[in-house]
Measured scan of single mutants.
Amino acid sequence: DETGKELVLVLYDYQEKSPREVTIKKGDILTLLNSTNKDWWKIEVNDRQGFVPAAYLKKLD
Score class of each variant (00 low, 15 high):
residue 1 D to C: 14
residue 1 D to L: 13
residue 1 D to A: 12
residue 2 E to Y: 12
residue 2 E to M: 14
residue 2 E to P: 12
residue 2 E to T: 14
residue 2 E to S: 14
residue 2 E to R: 08
residue 2 E to A: 14
residue 3 T to G: 13
residue 3 T to N: 12
residue 3 T to V: 13
residue 3 T to R: 10
residue 3 T to E: 12
residue 3 T to F: 12
residue 3 T to I: 13
residue 3 T to Q: 13
residue 4 G to V: 14
residue 4 G to I: 14
residue 4 G to F: 14
residue 4 G to H: 15
residue 4 G to P: 14
residue 4 G to E: 13
residue 5 K to C: 11
residue 5 K to Y: 13
residue 5 K to L: 11
residue 5 K to G: 08
residue 6 E to C: 15
residue 6 E to R: 14
residue 6 E to P: 10
residue 6 E to K: 12
residue 7 L to P: 04
residue 7 L to E: 07
residue 7 L to Y: 15
residue 7 L to S: 07
residue 7 L to G: 03
residue 8 V to F: 05
residue 8 V to K: 01
residue 8 V to I: 05
residue 8 V to R: 01
residue 8 V to C: 09
residue 8 V to Q: 01
residue 8 V to P: 00
residue 9 L to H: 04
residue 9 L to T: 05
residue 9 L to C: 07
residue 9 L to R: 07
residue 10 V to Q: 00
residue 10 V to G: 03
residue 10 V to P: 00
residue 11 L to C: 06
residue 11 L to F: 02
residue 11 L to Y: 02
residue 11 L to H: 02
residue 11 L to K: 05
residue 11 L to V: 06
residue 11 L to R: 05
residue 12 Y to L: 09
residue 12 Y to D: 09
residue 12 Y to S: 09
residue 12 Y to C: 13
residue 13 D to R: 03
residue 13 D to L: 02
residue 13 D to N: 09
residue 13 D to Q: 03
residue 13 D to F: 04
residue 14 Y to K: 01
residue 14 Y to C: 02
residue 14 Y to L: 02
residue 14 Y to A: 01
residue 15 Q to K: 13
residue 15 Q to G: 07
residue 15 Q to I: 14
residue 16 E to I: 10
residue 16 E to F: 08
residue 17 K to M: 11
residue 17 K to T: 11
residue 17 K to Y: 05
residue 17 K to F: 06
residue 17 K to H: 08
residue 18 S to W: 07
residue 18 S to Q: 09
residue 18 S to K: 08
residue 18 S to P: 04
residue 19 P to K: 09
residue 20 R to D: 11
residue 20 R to C: 13
residue 20 R to W: 15
residue 20 R to G: 15
residue 20 R to V: 10
residue 20 R to T: 11
residue 20 R to A: 13
residue 20 R to N: 14
residue 21 E to L: 03
residue 21 E to A: 05
residue 22 V to F: 07
residue 22 V to R: 03
residue 23 T to Q: 03
residue 23 T to A: 04
residue 23 T to V: 03
residue 23 T to R: 04
residue 24 I to N: 00
residue 24 I to M: 08
residue 24 I to Y: 04
residue 24 I to R: 00
residue 24 I to Q: 00
residue 24 I to V: 15
residue 25 K to W: 15
residue 25 K to T: 10
residue 25 K to F: 15
residue 25 K to R: 12
residue 25 K to Q: 09
residue 25 K to G: 05
residue 25 K to H: 13
residue 26 K to L: 04
residue 26 K to G: 06
residue 26 K to Q: 10
residue 26 K to W: 03
residue 26 K to F: 05
residue 26 K to M: 08
residue 26 K to V: 06
residue 27 G to Y: 05
residue 27 G to L: 02
residue 27 G to P: 01
residue 27 G to R: 02
residue 28 D to T: 13
residue 28 D to V: 06
residue 28 D to Y: 08
residue 28 D to N: 09
residue 28 D to R: 06
residue 29 I to Y: 05
residue 29 I to E: 03
residue 29 I to H: 04
residue 29 I to C: 06
residue 30 L to N: 07
residue 30 L to G: 15
residue 30 L to H: 15
residue 30 L to K: 02
residue 30 L to V: 15
residue 30 L to P: 03
residue 30 L to M: 05
residue 31 T to W: 15
residue 31 T to Q: 13
residue 31 T to K: 13
residue 31 T to Y: 11
residue 31 T to C: 10
residue 32 L to K: 01
residue 32 L to R: 01
residue 32 L to N: 01
residue 32 L to Y: 01
residue 32 L to M: 04
residue 32 L to T: 01
residue 33 L to C: 06
residue 33 L to I: 14
residue 33 L to P: 00
residue 33 L to W: 06
residue 33 L to E: 02
residue 33 L to K: 05
residue 34 N to L: 09
residue 34 N to H: 06
residue 34 N to G: 06
residue 34 N to E: 14
residue 34 N to P: 03
residue 34 N to Y: 06
residue 35 S to P: 06
residue 35 S to L: 04
residue 35 S to K: 07
residue 35 S to E: 10
residue 36 T to E: 14
residue 36 T to L: 10
residue 36 T to K: 13
residue 36 T to F: 09
residue 37 N to I: 05
residue 37 N to A: 09
residue 37 N to L: 08
residue 37 N to P: 04
residue 37 N to G: 09
residue 37 N to E: 10
residue 37 N to W: 07
residue 38 K to T: 10
residue 38 K to M: 10
residue 38 K to W: 07
residue 38 K to C: 09
residue 38 K to Y: 08
residue 39 D to F: 15
residue 39 D to Y: 15
residue 39 D to V: 15
residue 39 D to K: 15
residue 39 D to H: 15
residue 40 W to K: 02
residue 40 W to F: 06
residue 41 W to D: 00
residue 41 W to A: 02
residue 42 K to M: 14
residue 42 K to H: 08
residue 43 I to M: 01
residue 44 E to C: 11
residue 44 E to L: 11
residue 44 E to A: 10
residue 44 E to G: 06
residue 45 V to K: 15
residue 45 V to M: 10
residue 45 V to F: 14
residue 45 V to Q: 08
residue 46 N to G: 15
residue 46 N to D: 15
residue 47 D to Q: 12
residue 47 D to L: 09
residue 47 D to Y: 09
residue 47 D to P: 03
residue 47 D to V: 06
residue 48 R to C: 05
residue 48 R to M: 07
residue 48 R to V: 07
residue 48 R to T: 07
residue 48 R to E: 05
residue 48 R to I: 07
residue 48 R to D: 04
residue 48 R to S: 06
residue 49 Q to N: 08
residue 49 Q to C: 09
residue 49 Q to V: 13
residue 49 Q to L: 06
residue 50 G to K: 02
residue 50 G to C: 06
residue 50 G to E: 04
residue 50 G to S: 03
residue 50 G to F: 09
residue 50 G to L: 07
residue 50 G to W: 05
residue 50 G to Q: 03
residue 51 F to S: 03
residue 51 F to W: 15
residue 51 F to C: 10
residue 51 F to G: 01
residue 51 F to H: 05
residue 52 V to W: 01
residue 52 V to F: 01
residue 52 V to C: 05
residue 52 V to E: 00
residue 53 P to H: 02
residue 53 P to Q: 02
residue 53 P to Y: 03
residue 54 A to W: 02
residue 54 A to S: 13
residue 54 A to E: 03
residue 54 A to P: 04
residue 55 A to W: 11
residue 55 A to R: 15
residue 56 Y to W: 06
residue 56 Y to G: 05
residue 56 Y to V: 11
residue 56 Y to F: 11
residue 56 Y to E: 01
residue 56 Y to D: 02
residue 56 Y to L: 08
residue 57 L to W: 01
residue 57 L to F: 03
residue 57 L to Y: 01
residue 57 L to V: 08
residue 57 L to N: 00
residue 57 L to I: 06
residue 58 K to E: 09
residue 58 K to C: 15
residue 58 K to G: 05
residue 58 K to R: 13
residue 58 K to A: 10
residue 59 K to Q: 06
residue 59 K to D: 02
residue 59 K to L: 11
residue 59 K to P: 07
residue 59 K to G: 04
residue 59 K to V: 09
residue 60 L to H: 05
residue 60 L to K: 04
residue 60 L to Y: 08
residue 60 L to C: 09
residue 60 L to T: 05
residue 60 L to V: 12
residue 60 L to S: 04
residue 61 D to R: 12
residue 61 D to S: 14
residue 61 D to C: 13
residue 61 D to A: 13
residue 61 D to E: 12
residue 61 D to L: 11
residue 61 D to K: 14
